[in-house]
Amino acid sequence: MSPRPTPSPRLLMLSTVVLALAGTALLCLPHGRQSPTPVAAPPAAAVTARPPIFVPSTDRTPTADGAASPTSEAPTPSAVESALPPHGEGAAGDRAVQRNLETAWPADLPAPDERELLSASRALLRADATGAGRTRWPGVFRDTGQAVAPAFATTGFRIQAAIARRDGSPNRAVVHLVWAGTDRGGTFTDRRITDWPFTRTIKKGTATWTPLPRI
């Protein structure tokens, strides 16, 4: 039996090149149409419009769920009036009148100054209304040397409430007094209002409150 012939190197090289070209051609053939990659949508937060800024109106009325407007919290004149006792109630209602004054004008004077002002103004108002004790303040009452018929009777005269507050300056004050009395005609009226001004002078380190004539 004769031996098989050995392939030449040239033939082997040609076969290798053919196989390489065939493999490359197979790799380049398309394997079906591919769909394009979908583009991701932007996040919802990136395209959502900014919510409108709500500014409540100052004249809103209460809503259906009971939420009240800002102005509904402010006391009305009728509410303030209802906080006061009825006319003619007597001394039993004086505490409510005092509380109403203190609420309307918060304290702004030292306690010793307020006590001094209240004590002086009470005596001043009594002297002014009834004529009793006017000689104590000749600088306030110009008619201290004359006989003056009192405008109000001493009987039934009552100071219902009083507060002392600054009057635009640390050296000026005013006392708000609410009082009741019977005039010469026999008519009783309560919740009368009188304001009495004072000025403060300092001598040798001592402060003194001096009443001024009422305008």
Rank of each mutant, 00 (worst) to 15 (best):
S57Q: 14
N171F: 06
A162F: 05
L14M: 10
P197Q: 06
L11F: 06
G90N: 00
A147L: 13
M13H: 04
V55H: 04
A74K: 00
P7D: 09
R166H: 08
P150I: 06
L109Q: 14
G23Y: 02
A173P: 10
R50L: 11
V140T: 04
L117P: 15
A74F: 14
V17R: 05
A180L: 06
A107L: 06
S72Y: 13
P38N: 08
R136S: 12
A104I: 00
G185V: 07
D94Y: 01
R50P: 10
D128M: 14
Q98A: 05
P62C: 01
T155V: 02
F157T: 11
A83Q: 14
S121N: 00
T24G: 09
R95L: 04
V97S: 01
V18T: 03
R95C: 08
C28T: 11
P213A: 02
I163C: 03
Q160A: 00
A147Q: 07
A123C: 13
T155I: 12
L11H: 11
H31D: 11
P56G: 03
R191Q: 10
D94C: 07
L11M: 15
A67L: 13
E81I: 00
E116S: 12
D195G: 06
R33Y: 11
L11Y: 03
T144E: 15
P75Q: 09
C28I: 12
T58S: 15
L84A: 04
P211E: 15
Q146V: 14
A46R: 15
E114N: 10
V17D: 09
L26V: 07
G66V: 10
G66T: 13
E73W: 12
G139S: 02
F54R: 11
A83V: 04
T199M: 07
L177E: 00
P5S: 13
A127L: 09
P42W: 07
V97Y: 03
L124N: 02
A104Y: 13
S78C: 01
R33C: 05
P56W: 01
A149E: 11
R122H: 03
A49M: 10
T210C: 06
G185C: 08
G181A: 15
P42E: 00
T135N: 04
T182A: 05
P85L: 01
L124P: 06
F157K: 15
Q34E: 07
G181Y: 07
A173V: 15
P150N: 04
T24S: 13
G32H: 11
P112A: 08
D94P: 12
V97F: 05
L109P: 08
T155G: 09
A207Y: 12
T76R: 13
A161S: 03
V97L: 13
H31Y: 15
A25M: 13
